[in-house]
Design a protein around this nucleic acid. Structure first.
Length: 484
DNA sequence: ATGTAC
């Protein structure tokens, strides 16, 4: 397939509209030659299917961590012009609505934390429920849950889960406007109301990490983001909207399949790309329901953050304030958001689908928190539990991807294949011998997340930087991990 | 990702 691609630069590859009937725009895949060679052929099929969707603007994009997903590739970005019949598609957002990353610093060094790492991880494992079907300690009535999904992390702050200062460091200040609980099903409420403060399973995790001096790529940017001492300990976690978001996506996929062709005359190449015009009753209902998923996820991460502060405080015998447990940022990587972008020197309203892709706004842009205005929006990219993760910032040349970048390493093999190759018990021991203490709800789940089942995170980040869609600041390496 | 299937 690589021979059919037009090489735009070392890290940008294009599939022309002539590739497939119905493509409205070319597809562009980001990656080094090595990453492109490793890419599953199904991704080409998926990203070119996306290029046929009504209203798609400029390109159907796939980020350097791209891999096969439901309908859209994971790593997919598609911006739909809502004034030109553009659609909204759950497959372009993901079942786990507002799956995302949160990162917090401490004022502790690796040497200070090392003696406590097992205690910390064991206690975090108790206090942050993980695994399929786990429920949280926040007891809510169904009515109160409906408030949470409309108010997001702001509800949490009012109810004592976190600090006022946290909110400005969450995308959308922790509450996206326009969430409407009357647009979600009873079934979604049933699945979600006891899931606030839970990690989930699969690739969801909570990790204690170190910013080693040799892994800081830009000293000044690192300092501006709060990485100020050598071997500073930070806490990163990855989770989403649990069964709640999953149910919202399921509900509206069904709705869209019913009306898409009969009512709106939209023909698609893959049922998994079910969609509706953004400006239609069904499209608007899903948009408002999806925003409930976004807020549920912000609330989920806010409560987990609170739990982490409590655990560190308990184990280390100091208050969270005294431990300097301030947030760096919380960023979503499964959303569709209405944004203004300049297309061919004209400002347009675009619904930007980012599915396994992170918003990466440049310095000076509206919606970048005041304290990061001059350096750009922080981007948190979770690697595998063995290899490490990255903190990056958005850059002006990110305009080419509607200011989007990668979200993780990207899998290179199926979960089933990883289970055949790796053993969870052995992996746990090996990781421990390398200084990473890990707790997991399932050994098979652990095997699925082996570092070897993922692309090389360094390659992905390098590709994103060379392509000019984000700039790396620091690589963070794990010392403790709780695996969902 | 997910009460891992309606």
């Amino acid at each position: 397939m690589i021979d059919n691609l037009k090489r735009i630069s070392d890290t940008i590859w294009e599939i022309p509209v002539s590739y497939k009937q119905g493509m409205r725009v070319p597809a562009r895949i980001y990656g080094t030659e090595k990453l492109i060679q490793e890419l599953d052929d199904a991704v080409y099929d998926q990203v070119t299917n996306v290029a046929t969707l009504p209203g798609i603007t400029k390109y159907a994009l796939c980020m350097p961590d791209g891999h096969f997903g439901y309908g859209f590739p994971i790593g997919g970005v598609a911006a739909m012009d809502v004034e030109a019949g553009g659609v909204i598609s759950p497959g372009g957002i993901g079942f786990d609505i507002n799956c995302g990353m949160r990162l917090m610093v401490t004022n502790l060094t690796y040497d200070q934390v090392k003696p406590y790492i097992k205690k910390l991880v064991d206690r975090l494992y108790e206090r942050v429920p993980a695994g399929v079907g786990s429920t949280g300690f926040v007891k809510l009535s169904r009515n109160e849950f409906c408030k949470v999904v409309e108010e997001g992390a702001q509800w949490c702050i009012r109810n004592g889960y976190g600090w006022e200062e946290d909110l400005e460091l969450v995308e959308e200040n922790g509450c996206i406007q326009g969430a409407d609980a009357s647009k979600i099903s009873e079934k979604a409420i049933d699945r979600g109301f006891n899931q606030i403060g839970t990690l989930g399973s699969g690739n969801h995790y909570l990790e204690i990490q170190v910013a080693r001096p040799e892994n800081i790529y830009d000293q000044e940017l690192a300092r501006s983001l709060g990485i100020t001492i050598p071997n500073q300990v930070v806490v990163m976690f990855h989770c989403g909207s649990r069964g709640f978001g999953h149910q919202v996506a399921t509900d509206y996929l069904q709705t869209f399949l019913k009306v898409m062709e009969s009512k709106y005359g939209i023909k698609i190449l893959d049922r998994e790309l079910a969609c509706a015009p953004f400006n239609s009753p069904e499209g608007q209902a899903y948009f408002a329901a999806m925003k409930c998923g976004i807020n549920m996820s912000f609330a989920n991460r806010q409560v987990i953050l609170h739990q982490i502060r409590e655990v560190f405080s308990e184990i280390l015998g100091r208050s969270p304030e005294n431990l300097g447990m301030h947030m760096i940022y919380d960023v979503a990587h499964n959303t569709a958001k209405l944004e203004r972008h300049i297309i061919d020197s004209q400002e347009r309203s675009l619904l930007v689908h980012r599915k396994g892709a992170t918003r990466a706004f440049a310095p000076g842009m509206k919606d970048v928190p005041e304290r990061y205005k001059n350096i750009g929006q922080p981007v948190i990219i979770g690697g595998s539990m063995e290899t490490g993760s990255y903190l990056l910032v958005g850059v002006p040349s990110g305009e080419q991807t509607f200011f989007s970048t990668a979200h993780g390493s990207g899998r290179t093999m199926s979960r089933a294949k990883a289970r055949k190759i790796y053993r969870g018990e052995k992996l746990k021991k090996e990781m421990e011998s390398r200084g990473i203490y890990v707790r997991s709800t399932s050994y098979s789940g652990l095997a699925e997340e082996a570092g070897g089942a993922y692309k090389d995170i360094d390659d992905v980040i390098e590709a994103a930087e060379l392509a000019g869609i984000s700039k790396r600041v620091v690589k963070l390496t794990p010392i403790g991990n709780i695996k969902g």
